[in-house]
Computed example of a mutant assay.
Amino acid sequence: MPLWVEFDWLRQAVLNDPVLQQVIRRVGPANEPMGPYTVVNGNLIHKGRLVLPKGSNLVQKILGECHTTPSGGHSGGLRTLKRVAGNFYWVGMKADVLKMVAECDICQRQKYQATKPSGLLQPLPIPELVWEDVSLDFIVGLPKSRGFDVIMVVVDRLSKYSHFILHKHPFNAKGVAENFIKEIVRLHGVPRQPPVLTNFVLGETKVAAVGLELSDRDEVLRHLKYNLQRAQNSMTKYANGRRKNMKFQVGDLVGSMAYKLQIPKGSKIHHVFHVSLIKWAVGAGHALQEIPRGLDADFIMGFEPHKVLSTRIKRMGTNDKLEVLISWKDKATEEATWEDAKEREAQFPHFTLEDKANLKGEGIVRVLEDHPKPNVKFVYTRRHKNPV
């Protein structure tokens, strides 16, 4: 029969506790129940649960067993309290359990907060002039047309006038800059330094048509700014209704929604974080961890393709996508991964997939001649239906 080896120590701790000793004396040698308390086999019981001294080391062991072990599973405060209260009781048990769960370092690091995200919406300022501030984005993954499969979209943030510029994949910063100068700067000047548009003054020109055009232009700009401001106010009100404003007293504030943090020396990550990525650390038992592997050195891609082992056609909706099984240089064959053929060809232009792959067969998965075929043990066959 299993025995709890700490029973003797627990009895001695109860006897040394003045509050519990007073309860035992009230129960008396006749073992008459005093409210919820009774004495069973020399142990003080509270409603069928073993009573522990409040400040004993056994309380911390039980809290750890019911919360941090695999059976505890780092459950929430109420679930951990229910697990503890099933067998044990001490004065202030609920407060101790909730405090321990709130200060758990693993829970704070790994669990998300089921609350509104931090950080209010910060809309960009409305430009004063056309082509003073532009946005740029790319539409990729298009079917090729005359060799082009990418569209660069440049939009003036004030007038919403747009340019759609053709590109070929892969493209680099030099090609984007050349097309930007050719199609945007040539027509509208350099952003942040656009042609100056002075406000029209009545009587400035003697040509009535020119005066009317300039007056209409100024009126259009006023309407644009007014409507953009209304849209920003509406979006800000709607977005901030689902967010909360979080302020931290310690640390340097960068802008209005970012903070500069003290991070371990030697790390290669930026030390400024948005307020939505920061939360208060409860308790004082937070040990600084070592820098994760990969963040203590320069970010250099350590993967280089070595050989194509196989190919396959993967159905993505109504389209077929070619994937290749690539073994990487200085990596084991077991670490070979399936990669998109077009993406790898764009990322490693000097590694020609067609030259590396000696394919045979016309099936969905093509196997290389020098690659051993898998040992097939079981083959699925459809069961024939009995004729009616």
Rank of each mutant, 00 (worst) to 15 (best):
V365F: 04
D133Q: 12
M257A: 14
V275N: 01
I326F: 01
Q289C: 13
L58V: 06
E345P: 14
K307P: 09
N245A: 15
P123V: 00
L120V: 02
Q113R: 10
Q193S: 14
L50P: 01
G211L: 10
V97N: 02
D355I: 05
A85D: 01
N179D: 05
L142W: 02
T205S: 14
G147R: 08
R79V: 15
R26G: 00
N319S: 14
D370S: 09
I184Q: 00
L325I: 01
I139N: 06
E132L: 07
A297W: 02
G189Q: 11
Q249T: 11
H270Q: 09
G76E: 00
T38K: 11
K385Y: 10
N199D: 13
H67M: 04
L353M: 06
K360W: 02
K385G: 13
G28M: 04
H270K: 01
K116F: 02
F299R: 08
K99C: 00
A357D: 01
Q21A: 08
I24T: 07
D252H: 11
S159V: 02
E334A: 11
T68H: 15
R25I: 13
E362R: 12
E304G: 05
G64K: 12
V272T: 12
L81E: 09
N319W: 04
V155S: 01
Q262N: 13
S327T: 10
R293F: 05
V84D: 04
L129I: 06
F180Q: 06
V155G: 06
N386R: 11
D137A: 06
P191E: 01
K268R: 04
D252N: 13
Q110K: 13
I62Q: 00
G77H: 03
Y380C: 14
S162H: 04
S276T: 06
L63F: 07
N16H: 13
S234A: 10
L136K: 08
F273C: 03
L288N: 08
S118C: 11
G266V: 04
H74Y: 14
R293M: 12
L58D: 06
V154T: 08
A287D: 06
V282D: 00
G35D: 07
P36M: 03
M246K: 15
D216V: 10
S276Q: 11
E335Y: 07
N16L: 13
L322A: 12
K307L: 12
M246P: 01
A332D: 13
K279C: 03
N245M: 10
G283D: 04
P292I: 03
R49F: 04
Y161C: 12
V19E: 15
P36E: 06
V324F: 07
